[in-house]
Nucleic acid binder design. Structure first.
Lengths: 222, 222
DNA sequence: TCTTGCTTTACGGTTTCCCGTAAGGAATAC
DNA sequence: GTATTCCTTACGGGAAACCGTAAAGCAAGA
């Protein structure tokens, strides 16, 4: 049995159009689409109120900022808010992001039902995913189905990312204490910063800061 | 007067679908689409041979690699090859890339006729771009039309990127000479490497390597 | 108040990096 | 052959980063 009501949250108009087309091909007539996360959340609330809740949310992860300031700024926050409001809502993420770590986190922390990567055969995949999820299954790319290979992972705290972002902005290590004090961030001693960086490098097996910055950029940590 | 024959080179199926839809809305009946650059080039050659050349190429910039090994690996190479074959061909780039430096280079070096960024109203923009280019105009995003503000730019040589990539891979600076000698890359002295890095940082106004790595990651230089 | 345990900071010695200067080497011109 | 020029490398002093250890701060409990 296919979905009744589907909400599409996707900021790229062109992508939104083709998702709608795929939805239409599956004879889903009650679909709605928005370009901003806040709109998506509002629609979900409203649909609940009039007792016609959506049964699927298809959402992108990254939404571009523009003049329209949003409370909910990305797909992750939208999914959280949506699930708070309507725990039973199924969620299909449709994003260009391809890093396993990101997708793993979505599955584990947010309990999403499917993931389709924007790539060569994404329209076909989208259709397959919709069919699978409609049958109560999950849909994830092949590489996700295999056991999560152990990789060097490290939970970056906001303290960590602050330091790393400062470094990446060209602040010298020994200048960082001053910056931290200005913002009342507490371990502000140079020694603490050194230790922290050392710990991170150690856990991840890195030998210099350059490698760490590259890693953080690749995984969009900063 | 609208285009007669349009070729769409875009690897994301979903995006390709909506570009085709936009093309169709403009009553262009002879459009063709491909998912690989090599295919695009082959179509252009073939169309020329049978004396029915395309008059517009709409292409993405980045194409994802897969099992299908391509000679032409990205949009830039495709545009170059296409213009070599058919100098009068008009080109509209449709890409998510948003860095001014990249777009400037396309305009200057490849003489593209339009650029639409994959973003919120990209479908509408695409339509506007098509109409403009059909009238012999150029179409670029607003921020491009204003004079190119002087920014710190630097042409990275392959030597530069090699060094930076080694750093980002966790190789220590003083270990780099060994790596360069192994690959017969010629200024291999530690001093040359230091000088080179110093020059790059200087030109770009950076104060440490971390900042440089962040920059290179942001601009996809490594 | 005085422990106890934990976190943060301070302080050195060592290594690495930074950067200016000078020496070496190769190519070209005279 | 020897100047000239340009590029590369070697060297050395100073700055920054690295890292272990010890001292100081701080919170909670006896």
């Amino acid at each position: 049995m296919m979905f009744e009501r589907v909400l599409i949250a996707e900021d790229q108009e062109s992508t939104s159009i083709s998702v709608r087309k795929t939805i239409g091909d599956l004879n889903i007539v009650n679909s709605d689409y928005v370009f901003y996360c806040d709109d998506a959340f509002a629609r979900i609330q409203k649909a609940l109120k009039i007792n016609q809740p959506f049964d699927l949310l298809i959402t992108d992860l990254s939404f571009e900022e523009d003049h329209n300031i949003q409370k909910i700024i990305d797909g992750v926050a939208l999914i959280k808010a949506a699930k708070d409001e309507q725990p039973g809502l199924k969620v299909l993420v449709f994003s260009a992001e391809g890093k396993s770590a990101v997708i793993d986190a979505l599955i584990k922390d947010l309990g999403i039902d499917g993931y389709v990567r924007k790539a060569r055969h994404d329209a076909k995949e989208l259709r397959s995913a919709l069919e699978a999820i409609a049958q109560g299954k999950k849909y994830f790319p092949a590489q996700m189905k295999m056991p999560v290979k152990e990789r060097n992972t490290y939970d970056f705290t906001s303290y960590d990312t602050t330091i790393i972002a400062l470094l990446a902005a060209g602040i010298k290590q020994k200048e960082i204490p001053g910056y931290l004090q200005n913002q009342d961030i507490k371990p502000s001693g140079l020694s603490s910063i050194e230790k922290r960086l050392n710990l991170i490098r150690d856990v991840l097996g890195f030998s210099n800061n350059e490698q760490l910055i590259a890693y953080c950029k690749d995984f969009k940590i900063i």
